[in-house]
Design a binder for these strands. Sequence first.
DNA 1: TTAATATGCAACTGTATGGTTGCATGTCAA
DNA 2: TTGACATGCAACCATACAGTTGCATATTAA
Lengths: 106, 106
Amino acid sequence: MDDVFRALADTSRRLLLDRLHGQPGQTLGELCQGLEMSRQAVSKHLAILADANLVVSLKRGREKLHYLNPVPIHEIADRWIGKYQRAPLNALAALKTRLEEKKDDQ
Amino acid sequence: MDDVFRALADTSRRLLLDRLHGQPGQTLGELCQGLEMSRQAVSKHLAILADANLVVSLKRGREKLHYLNPVPIHEIADRWIGKYQRAPLNALAALKTRLEEKKDDQ
DNA sequence: TTAATATGCAACTGTATGGTTGCATGTCAA
DNA sequence: TTGACATGCAACCATACAGTTGCATATTAA
């Protein structure tokens, strides 16, 4: 799961996921279009995303088609975020008002 | 939102969130107990979490009480993960079986 | 006031990371 | 077969980052 969090930490990689979500099966070259990065930079990002299993790929001739794999994101949502969904929002709201009352505290 | 993803990328910081989730209002010293890190390392992590608004704190005398703020996590779940929840799992499953059929691709 | 406690700040270090350039490999088309 | 195209690999660079050590500041208690 660490791989997934690490992979998601970078804006460029989240952008790539976003693009693959919008249009699945894009090649490396297609993913590069419109980006400021070099092809090799994109390739490295894709490798990191693939290591985290967030992207799977399929070779077709000299091209490589890339697909978003939402499963790790689902798992994070279920196993990790779910835990914090049950966090006491009301208790925090009360704390926040206390903090706002005496703003000098930082 | 970038701050939040960055903050969540580190295992130690997720551990700290976990501890604050289990027992809210802990001081820096309390959070250090049982960890291998130095106090300053924990302090830095807390600063990063605070920048991302994942942790809010409240000064009480010479102590500083730390609380988990689940709001940014909720926002990520709603605004970001929600988008991928609607990703076509079936299409991917089909792709995966294709990949497994000819494993030499990778 | 003084000592102990709790935290904050700053400088420094090693390593991870994002990015580049250059070249190699593999595949398609003429 | 030859050239163009798509991708892969390796070395290199600058910066970010996690962590440390050392000292400063602020609060409590004797």
